[in-house]
Design a protein around this nucleic acid. Structure first.
Length: 731
DNA sequence: ATAGGGTTAG
């Protein structure tokens, strides 16, 4: 307790004892205690039965000091004595509700106000109006607004800004224009409210237009307006306008405001102008957290992950007080750029540093858990969300659904989804993509129909998941119907992703010609994903003609992606066309792809091997064996690590796990092992989680029962049973 | 007795 307060109590106490002696206990004394924030003492002095005046005195004081919980407590206590508050007291309670976002009590008070007729009082009306604005119940606010006898600049601007914050362009504009028409000119605060509102609701163009209109109306922007419009410029309009505003700000001398600085750094970061961003940062007099955070996110946005990490560490060593935003940005940066382990580590350090993760931190962290199937970390984040009561946040919720699905726990994802009270489209999509990833088409279509029943409008992402689920399960007719319904029933123009899904759907089902004619007739210029889908299908069905067409398209579109060359050579190999295989290899070489053929060659070798293991009576058996030996020699000669598959056959059980962890081509190894007679090999990889150095496509494997195996690549889980993948692909 | 505007993380 401060000295001041101690002294105060001391003197208040002596007055108290004097008054007790003289028997003059009254509201003045209560007021004395309450206005010095000694509420318990004040409450103790309430007469019995308490009267309305004493309560009023304490409530005023509590409200004056923004003690919202206490204000509401007194209010309910007063009501428990059947004392009715007079109108003057109502705004205090409503203000407390607003600061606590307590809707329930506010609605009760509103009811009381309506029945008691105190709504006629302008100040009661006004406080309720602002309450509804604050909690975003615009319809209620609007009703009160329309009944207001005199609508001043403040209420008009507040309502218009409220609509802007809700992205309700037409209402925002309407209220704003009406205000001007009725002769009330908006001031800088009114304009700023509109700009900030539109910016926050993602109406970037609208925010910029408002800023321009303000300028045209002859008003000069202040720091708040500038820092509200800059993010929108960064998002939407781009550099030239940003630079214009920069000049304008320099001219009017506003480059002293902290937020303006951060906003400029952020704006240049969003436009990927790292040089300008750094210049502004270096010119700062004082290192401000906001500016640091904007810098980190700017570096991250341009993919400069190491620079961002370095900057972050530098700030730490400079003892800059890094806040939640700083840590969260850094975690987001890592999990977005493949540094998943680092993200988990940062989350730990953050808590060690005493910075409390919030509801934004969790959805930044969870993708990192999902990427490397770090289920225990994901679960810990889930528990934390429950303790902090933000598991019902839609961002947290969808990230949790995603994480569980990525970790192979699709039932858990569904279970969690069912518990959410108001899942939004992103949550539904997360669940749907989880089912798609697990190849559970039946569940995916059920979810899609449930969405319709619940009135959730699907978007492009929804259809990508739905179609990819159909594609994996071979539901050709259903997939076609869904694809056609996109435009016809839902008004969504199919995009590249959906075309790629359809090509894959038709292709996997063996309808390669149909897939090809879809490609040639599509209204968009097919990209690498579309051709890639065709090439993969051609590999599955050993279709050389279309495979060549697709592959050569891909060699143009992504000449440096070794995967395409490998796919084509696999098709040739499956047909025993060894000369063509060598040709492809030569093209690779000529394009400088020799650097890392190891992985590719092992993959190729394994596929040949799979073919061999799967079909002992292959007509070209001897040729294949011969080729295999050649490759083995070639591998050794090029100095690559010992061929995992062969090594595994020769080593002791306990060494196998070690070898698996150190190699990138585990997947093929796993497959190979399933095809070998040795059942014992399965024990070695049981529950083995591979993370860290492994190849992008092979993040982890999990094994359920017996000879069934689940393998996840970047997009989906593959279910292998007795060496056969449910999706029909080879691995 | 109440009341309008800001940056950075998803």
């Amino acid at each position: 307790m401060s000295m001041m307060k101690k002294k105060m109590i001391y003197s208040v106490a002596s007055v108290h004892s004097y008054m007790l002696k003289s028997g003059e206990l009254n509201t003045k004394l209560i007021s004395l205690y309450a206005n010095n924030q000694c509420f318990l003492e004040a409450e103790r002095l309430l007469p019995s039965p308490p009267d309305i005046f004493s309560f009023t005195t304490i409530i005023y004081a509590a409200s004056k000091f923004n003690n919202s919980h206490y204000t509401l407590h007194l209010f309910s206590r007063m009501r428990s004595f059947n004392l009715l508050p007079d109108a003057q007291l109502l705004p205090c309670a409503i203000k407390a509700c607003a600061s606590l976002m307590c809707l329930r009590i506010a609605l009760q008070i509103h009811g009381h106000i309506t029945t008691s007729g105190s709504l006629a009082e302008a100040f009661v009306q006004s406080s309720l109006f602002h309450f509804y604005l604050k909690v975003g119940m615009l319809d209620n606010a609007r009703k009160l607004f329309d009944e207001m006898p005199d609508k001043d600049v403040k209420s008009c601007s507040a309502l218009a800004a409220g609509y802007a914050k809700k992205a309700d362009k037409s209402n925002a504009r309407q209220v704003f224009c009406k205000m001007r028409e009725s002769g009330v000119e908006p001031n800088v605060v009114s304009w700023n409210g509109m700009i900030a509102g539109f910016n926050q609701s993602g109406q970037f163009l609208e925010a910029v237009l408002m800023f321009k209109d303000m300028h045209l109306s002859g008003l000069i922007a202040d720091g708040i307006g500038i820092s509200s419009v800059l993010p929108s410029i960064g998002h939407f309009v781009g550099l030239s306008m940003g630079a214009q505003v920069h000049g304008y700000v320099v001219k009017i001398g506003l480059l002293t405001d902290k937020c303006v600085h951060s906003a400029f750094i952020d704006m240049y970061g969003k436009c990927h102008c790292c040089k300008e961003m750094l210049t502004i940062f270096e010119d700062l007099d004082h290192v401000d957290v906001g500016a640091c955070n904007a810098l980190i996110s700017g570096l991250s946005r341009s993919g400069l992950v190491n620079e961002a990490l370095g900057t972050f560490e530098k700030f730490q060593s400079l003892a800059v007080e890094l806040n939640v935003v700083s840590w969260t940005s850094m975690i987001a940066c890592c999990s977005q750029h493949g540094k998943d382990m680092e993200a988990l580590e940062l989350f730990r350090e953050m808590q060690k540093a005493g910075v409390k993760p919030n509801s934004v931190t969790i959805p930044c962290l969870l993708p990192a858990c999902g990427n490397i199937a770090a289920l225990s970390h994901g679960k810990a984040a889930h528990c934390y969300s429950i303790r902090q009561r933000f598991w019902n946040d839609v961002y947290v919720g969808s990230a949790l659904v995603d994480m569980y699905a990525n970790c192979g726990r699709i039932q858990k994802a569904r279970h969690f989804f069912n518990m959410m009270s108001e899942p939004n489209l992103v949550c539904w999509n997360a669940l749907l993509s989880g089912y798609a990833m697990h190849g559970m088409a039946k569940e995916a279509t059920e979810i899609f129909h449930l969405m319709q029943i619940r009135g959730v409008k699907p978007d492009s992402v929804t259809f990508t998941s739905l179609l990819s689920a159909c594609s994996q399960s071979g539901l050709v007719n259903e997939g076609r119907l869904y694809f056609d319904s996109m435009l016809q029933s839902h008004g969504i123009e199919p995009r590249m992703e959906q075309y790629a899904c359809m090509v894959s759907l038709l292709g996997r089902a063996g309808k390669l010609e149909e897939a090809y004619s879809l490609i040639t007739s599509m209204p968009l210029e097919p990209d690498a994903c579309v051709w890639g889908a065709l090439l993969s299908s051609c590999r599955v069905h050993h279709n050389m003609n279309l495979g060549e067409i697709a592959a050569y398209k891909l060699f143009e579109l992504e000449p440096n992606n070794p995967g395409n060359y490998i796919l084509l050579s696999n098709i040739y190999a499956s047909r025993g066309k060894w000369k063509e295989v060598d040709n492809v290899r030569d093209i690779m070489k000529s394009r400088g792809l020799r650097k890392n053929p190891g992985c590719s060659w092992i993959e190729f070798k394994n596929k040949v091997h799979m073919l061999l293991a799967g079909d002992q009576s292959h007509p070209q058996m001897s040729l294949i064996l011969e080729k295999l030996d050649d490759l083995r020699v070639e591998m050794k000669r090029s100095g690559f690590a010992p061929n995992t598959h062969f090594v595994l056959q020769d080593v002791e059980e306990q060494e196998k796990e070690h070898i698996l962890c150190g190699h990138s081509e585990k997947l093929a190894v796993v497959f190979g092992m399933l095809n070998t007679k040795a059942g014992s090999s399965l024990n070695v990889i049981k529950n083995l989680r591979i993370c860290g150095d492994c190849h992008n496509f092979m993040k982890f494997i999990s094994i359920s029962e017996g000879r069934e195996i689940y393998v996840r690549d970047t997009n989906r889980f593959h279910h292998f049973k007795d060496g056969i993948c449910s999706c029909g692909d080879y691995w």
